[in-house]
């Protein structure tokens, strides 16, 4: 069963100078027990997309399309029901745990507040909080309840945030760059915790990241976003082996690797754009080495292609070349 279904989501920010598009026709789904990556650079709209799973849209935004989280249409829910959905059925893990936890309250207060919101009786909350902290690997969980956020390292505090996200036994976890603020060796631990949770509880995980290699390493499937649109979706393993969109392939080539000869990187020219900055036609065309006049005709549709889908009118003819290049990268 899908715990998250986003269908044709278009988001515009209404401003004084007219509507500024943020997302265009984004569709994705996450099944229970599945780990799905949402990959993109700044301005791609990946953060906005994942937050709609909680029914959160930017202030002053107009929304088209549907988002069903654990079977509920989040934009149709009354405010009370939406709060219930957020506290009981969805867990959210933000990038910076320091910004998520109020430094003036004890760690226990933070977790217990989440439990109370999820409907746990007051008397049971401390015991449940202890159990949650223990389950995310906090040593001496009962004492940890009495400690302050500043006494925790970034990695440990992220565990606390994850514990609070688990308060309502969620069916869906949304993690927005959960390890970007953490050290590399801690990143692995926090990720393995998230993966364990998904495996044990059968919850779906939507993992938002800028790190293509990370997504490929831990996800079942991944969506690649560029300028407010999904440009490619693949089983994660094929992302490396056979990227189908020139942007995905370009990102892979632009990433320095730990193996192979050290040579000049093939950089993607220009900078990542937002949807409001791109011309009609393929958003990536101005930066794409393979662009042809046909690319400016209109935004290319996301078409099924093997196990995945790709939004590139030249995907078919480019496939052999992109795959060959990817293999060169891998072989060395």
């Amino acid at each position: 069963m899908n715990v998250l279904e986003i269908d044709g989501l278009t988001v515009r920010l209404e401003g004084s100078v007219g509507a500024r598009p943020v997302l265009s026709d984004v569709s994705l789904h996450v099944a229970g027990g599945e780990v799905v990556g949402l990959v993109g650079e700044s301005g791609s709209g990946k953060s906005v997309t994942c937050r709609t799973a909680l029914g959160a849209v930017p202030r002053g935004a107009s929304v088209d399309g549907a988002v069903r989280t654990v079977g509920e249409d989040v934009f149709g829910l009354p405010a009370r029901e939406l709060r219930r959905l957020r506290s009981e059925k969805v867990g959210f893990v933000p990038q910076d745990p320091r910004a998520a936890v109020n430094p003036l309250y004890r760690v226990g207060d933070y977790v217990i507040e989440a439990l109370r919101a999820a409907g746990v009786p007051k008397a049971e909350a401390p015991d449940r909080a202890t159990a949650l902290l223990e389950s995310v690997g906090i040593p001496e969980p009962r004492r940890a309840l009495r400690r302050w956020p500043h006494e925790f390292s970034g990695g440990m505090l992220q565990r606390v945030v994850i514990a609070a996200a688990l308060a309502g036994s969620p069916r869906l976890l949304v993690a927005d760059e959960p390890t970007t603020a953490l050290d590399v060796t801690i990143q692995a631990e926090v990720l393995s915790l998230l993966l364990d949770i998904t495996a044990e509880r059968g919850a779906g995980l939507l993992l938002v990241t800028h790190d293509l290699e990370l997504a490929a390493a831990v996800c079942d499937r991944a969506y690649v976003m560029y300028a407010g649109r999904i440009v490619e979706s693949e089983p994660a393993a094929s992302l490396f082996a056979s990227p189908k969109h020139p942007y995905t392939a370009g990102l892979l080539r632009a990433t320095p690797s730990l193996t192979g000869p050290v040579e000049r990187l093939t950089a993607v020219p220009g900078r990542p754009l937002g949807l409001d900055e791109v011309l009609p036609g393929c958003s990536f065309a101005p930066r794409c080495a393979h662009a042809r006049p046909v690319c400016d005709d209109g935004p290319p549709p996301l078409l099924e292609d093997g196990a995945g889908a790709v939004a590139c009118v030249r995907a078919g003819e480019l496939a052999p070349e992109l795959r060959r290049r990817a293999h060169e990268e891998q072989a060395v």
Binding site: V184, T185, I186, Q187, A188, E189, L191, S192, L195, D196, D211, E213, L214, A216, A217, V218, A237, F240, L258
Partner: peptide, 18 residues
């Protein structure tokens, strides 16, 4: 080095090592 995500990556093992 092991902490850098790669194919066949086992994040749990890194946690244990750390």
């Amino acid at each position: 080095l092991a902490s850098v995500p790669h194919q066949g990556w086992d994040p749990a093992a890194i946690g244990r090592a750390r």
